[in-house]
Design a protein around this nucleic acid. Structure first.
Lengths: 225, 225
DNA sequence: TAATTTGTGTAAAGATTCGGTAAAAGTGTT
DNA sequence: AACACTTTTACCGAATCTTTACACAAATTA
């Protein structure tokens, strides 16, 4: 699964070069030229990481970073800036940045740092065992009681999302942003529930009394610890 | 709880300065002058993070990093080195480093990067404990005397509101604005009281003599400090 | 002091919403 | 066309919310 980056920079040339490079290295890059655009994007989809230029035309980068960390605490942020003083760096980190890169920078270093960042947030590529459930994300296989089962793409994405956020409540809103991204779904649509149902039938012993995918009334779903 | 750093560097002067600085900033720093010493320390205790100089006298830093990541994959590593080429940086990250800092560096920046690294690796357990009550807002769970209880959405929202405004008197007016928002409720409605009652039955030992949700006659309710 | 008003606690009934579910319809691929 | 997968639709029952009615205590008034 391609990791999605949100790149926010006001210089269209830099944006173009970065986007091209990121895609060359296997990322899915979404770009925004200012805070307003970035905000719009975040309303419909949640990237895996944000690359944030500090010199945006319509707002103060440090404030934006605080705001982002407040609203989306799990998304790592890499700051890109021309300011290289220790003071600025410390400010950047204190406003919640996960890394801070001074311009001009080498694309390869940026890529390496993005990977390092993502590695931290999305751990373990080996097999995860939860009770009777075995999931191997690198091999893309799911076993129930040692027996391999087949999941459709959507079901697999759902399971992936659940396991990477195990123990936390996941709202339908969050699921929609992460899995359906910009594609349109009516707010009243029951698609998510239907896929949950399918997934439950495949992994739960008794789908009406689920032990893995628990529903949290009024909030969403939660994968058991 | 102080975070423990393991600092590995062959220059005793740098080691001394770093240790003093780290302790000034509230870390517990353990030092090693070479790989052998570091290895000994790791046999007895696991630090929260490793600061690794790449130019050790008795071994190759990149190899060490790989070895460390293999044996202690959860401990983040920050590389410290004089090599500033992109090639070296990428090598560093590929061998598993979580951050890479080029010498000479500012101590404040190093501190900021250590903090950023720790923040990413150590997910904070956001459980709030009040007497016999344990609430975890990210897991959306409430425990009374260690036993998990189920709350309906409205009950949960109420509890959330109370805990985030703990110790303050909360008027019904305020509750209505915060929880019922735009939905219309008659001003004489007793909904709020009814939900309070339900909540009390679930979290109070003796609902008629509440110890958490206290009634402030004529004003509203107050959650105990 | 007695009567009245006000504020809150509480049980139970009625109303509404939400989530589970089956089946049909839509979409795209081979 | 057959197939696999996704999405919509419609319905049901249970969970949840709201109203209602009354009880009771404290405060206020006569």
């Amino acid at each position: 699964m391609k990791k999605q980056l949100l790149v926010v920079d006001d210089d269209p040339d830099i944006l173009k070069v970065l986007k091209a490079n990121f895609e060359l290295y296997g990322f899915d890059a979404v770009t925004a030229a200012n805070w307003a655009e970035a905000h719009d994007i975040l309303n419909n989809q949640l990237p895996d990481i944000i690359i944030l230029d500090l010199m945006l035309p319509d707002s103060d980068g440090i404030q934006i970073c605080r705001l982002l960390k407040d609203q989306y605490p799990r998304i790592p942020i890499i700051m890109l800036t021309a300011k290289d003083s220790v003071f600025d760096k410390v400010m950047g980190f204190e406003s919640g940045a996960d890394d801070y890169i001074v311009k001009p920078f080498e694309t390869l270093e940026l890529i390496a740092r993005i990977r390092a960042c993502l590695k931290r947030t999305m751990p373990v590529d080996s097999t995860i065992v939860i009770n009777n459930l075995e999931v191997n994300f690198s091999a893309h296989t799911v076993k129930v009681k040692g027996k391999e089962i087949e999941l459709t793409p959507k079901e697999y994405e759902l399971l992936h999302l659940f396991i990477t956020n195990r123990g936390e409540v996941i709202s339908r809103q969050f699921i929609r942003k992460k899995i359906w991204r910009e594609s349109e779904i009516y707010s009243w649509s029951r698609v998510i529930d239907v896929h949950i149902q399918h997934l439950r039938h495949k992994i739960e012993k008794n789908p009406s009394e689920p032990e893995y995918i628990l529903t949290v009334s009024g909030a969403g779903y939660k994968f058991r610890q």
